[in-house]
Simulated assay, not measured.
Amino acid sequence: MSDPRFPDPRTPSERQAEESTIGQLLSEVSRDISTLMRQEVELAKAELKESAGRAGKSAGMFGGAGVAGVLALTFLSIAVWWGLGYVMGNAWSAVIVAAVWGIVALVLALVGKREMESITGMPETVETIKEIPDALKRNEENR
């Protein structure tokens, strides 16, 4: 019993910790970790939802910019075709404009193909995933 003249200097949580069993303490720690993990997952979901919304909006803006760029190039090409048409005739100027765009398309396709061939995927991730079974086997052998 404690003497009322001398109050216990411990906090209620300190008194509870001293009176609790190891099983109770482990149960509390487990519950707290479980709660923390659930809260972290919920936070991740909320952040992912917000990021996905912004990414969708940005993709829409890029799509609109692409359409506007195509229209600008179309009208610029028509203007070049007509301008050359005054010098050499509309038929030949159309062929020249089409040939220039064909060369641009060929160069872009070749550069895109080279970039696509250089993609290696996720080599480090694949390597670390391959190491997981070996790491688990080592732990089982030590038991």
Rank of each mutant, 00 (worst) to 15 (best):
S2Y: 09
P4W: 09
R5S: 12
F6S: 00
D8S: 05
R10D: 15
R10L: 15
R10K: 11
R10I: 07
R10H: 04
T11Q: 10
T11L: 03
P12T: 07
Q16F: 15
E19F: 10
E19C: 12
E19Y: 08
G23A: 15
Q24K: 01
L25M: 10
L26G: 08
E28T: 14
E28Q: 15
D32L: 11
T35D: 04
T35V: 14
L36H: 11
E40M: 12
L43I: 01
K45M: 07
L48P: 14
E50V: 12
S51A: 13
S51Q: 11
A52R: 08
A52Y: 09
A52L: 12
G53H: 01
A55G: 03
A55D: 13
K57R: 08
A59P: 02
G60H: 09
M61E: 11
M61C: 09
G66D: 12
V67R: 02
A68H: 09
G69Y: 04
V70A: 15
V70E: 11
V70H: 06
L71M: 10
T74F: 09
I78N: 01
V80D: 07
V80K: 01
W82C: 05
G83V: 10
V87A: 09
M88L: 15
A91R: 14
W92C: 04
W92E: 07
S93A: 06
V95R: 05
V95N: 05
I96V: 13
A99F: 11
A99M: 14
A99V: 06
V100H: 11
G102I: 01
I103D: 00
I103P: 07
A105I: 08
V107I: 10
A109T: 13
A109Q: 05
A109V: 09
L110E: 07
L110W: 02
L110N: 14
L110H: 13
V111I: 10
G112F: 13
K113C: 09
R114A: 08
R114L: 10
M116V: 03
I119W: 14
P123Q: 07
E124G: 08
E124R: 14
T125Y: 13
E127Y: 00
I129G: 02
I129F: 03
P133M: 00
P133Q: 14
A135T: 13
L136H: 12
K137M: 04
R138L: 08
N142T: 15
N142F: 09
